[in-house]
Amino acid sequence: MGLGWPQAWLLDLPTAVVYGSLTLFITVLHNVFLLYYVDTFVSVYKISKAAFWVGETVFLLWNSLNDPLFGWLSDRQFLSSQPRPGSWQGSGGGSTPCLCGEEAGNITLGQYLWQLAHHRNFLWFVVMDLVQVFHCHFNSNFFPLFLEHLLSDHISLSTGSFLLGISYVAPHLNNLYFLPLCRRWGVYTVVRGLFLLKLGLSLLMLLAGPDRPGLLCLFIASNRVFTEGTCKLLTLVVTDLVDEDLVLNRRKQAASALLFGMVALVTKPGQTLAPLLGTWLLCFYTGHDLFQQSPLTPVGRAQPWPEPPAPPPVQAPTLRQGCFYLLVLVPITCALLQLFTWSKFTLHGRRLRMVKAQRQNLSQVQTLDIKTV
């Protein structure tokens, strides 16, 4: 009786409220872990570099494989009795997929992967998205480090917390503005504009140098905001890839869960590469190893006049400079790579409209087949 009323109340909630609440709690848990786990394991628990790499490797394997595994389990029933893929044939109005085909029996996972390996837009997209995932998680993992070594002498703790909160909330608010832009100009154009904006802001910050606290605050926050905002828009591109996969291979039903899983398989390693490559670059450039611990003096060996430690001002500028160059050169490199790969992506404009029209035609043909049977 005690649990009956809350359970009935929960069952009466609208689906949107339940789904939104679940997403909120998962996002809070994920972001808190993502922001602090590197600093916690390295600075608080002081684990060794080898243990950190082993943990990241295990995380990489499971994090990359679980999505395509669950996607295959979800969509394998839709991939049975598929016709042979049609081909793109030229016509006076451009290339169109041929809708003719013969029944080819069940499609195995290997055959599906072979089809996906020949899906050109999918390949260019996952390369671009791998860089995007890397950059998003790099910003999250090293946000506390940048605040500590670049801004701790210029801003208060509350201001740092405010910057952190803004960097997580603003991307959701930005999407309220980006989505109308996507409807007007197309997702491809908006995403390309965000890449150009990231490159421009990073070059401006590089020219300004590390001694502009106000500009640093603005850049650190905006870098996270626009990068996270781009990540949220890319889901729309994956849905277009699902449509193109459906049309190219003339599937009976879109294998959306499996294609989303295959995107995750290729791009989620960026989550592991971000902390590993970031700590390595910082150590390579400054000689400062985040995993290095000061040796403890053995009991009974303490000397009455120990050698004084090296004065902090000697090493602080080097570490600060390393953090600054890491802050600006990583987004510059990511933006250049993404602009190149995104320029090879052709599923926009006329081709996207053609794919949408062909998917509509396929849906109508399948509806007619069902009515005939």
Rank of each mutant, 00 (worst) to 15 (best):
L3I: 10
W5K: 15
A8D: 15
A8W: 02
L11C: 06
D12M: 15
V18P: 09
T27R: 12
L29E: 08
N31Y: 13
N31D: 15
V44E: 11
I47H: 02
K49Q: 14
T57G: 04
V58D: 00
N66H: 15
P68Y: 01
P68K: 09
P68N: 10
L69N: 09
L69A: 14
L73R: 08
S74D: 13
L79V: 09
Q82L: 04
R84D: 09
R84H: 10
G86I: 07
G90Q: 13
G94L: 02
P97R: 15
P97N: 15
G101Y: 03
E103I: 05
A104I: 00
T108E: 02
L109R: 14
G110W: 12
L116A: 10
L116S: 08
H119E: 00
R120H: 10
W124S: 00
V127K: 12
F134P: 00
H135L: 14
S140K: 13
N141P: 08
E148C: 12
H149A: 03
L150H: 02
L151Q: 01
L151N: 00
S152T: 01
L157Y: 11
S158I: 11
S158W: 06
L164W: 12
I166L: 13
Y168A: 02
Y168L: 07
P171I: 05
N175L: 07
L179H: 12
L179T: 14
L181E: 01
R183F: 14
Y188C: 08
G193C: 09
L196F: 13
L201R: 07
L201T: 12
M205W: 01
M205L: 09
M205K: 00
P213Q: 10
L218Y: 03
F219Q: 01
A221I: 03
S222D: 01
R224L: 09
T227A: 08
T227Q: 11
G229W: 01
K232C: 13
L233G: 10
T235G: 15
T235D: 05
V238D: 01
T239K: 11
D240P: 06
D243N: 13
D243F: 06
L246I: 05
N249P: 01
K252V: 12
Q253L: 06
A255V: 03
A255G: 11
A255I: 02
A257W: 00
L258Y: 08
F260R: 06
M262G: 10
V263F: 00
T267F: 07
K268I: 00
G270F: 00
G270W: 00
Q271G: 13
L273Y: 10
T279I: 06
T279L: 12
L296C: 09
V299W: 11
G300D: 04
R301I: 09
W305K: 06
P306D: 02
P308D: 13
P308M: 13
P309G: 02
P312M: 04
P313Q: 03
Q315R: 15
P317E: 02
P317F: 02
R320M: 10
F324R: 03
Y325A: 01
L327N: 01
V330R: 01
P331L: 04
C334S: 08
L337G: 04
L337M: 13
Q338T: 04
F340K: 08
T346R: 10
G349W: 10
G349S: 09
G349A: 07
R350V: 13
V355H: 05
K356H: 13
K356S: 08
R359V: 06
Q360F: 07
L362V: 10
V365P: 00
V365C: 04
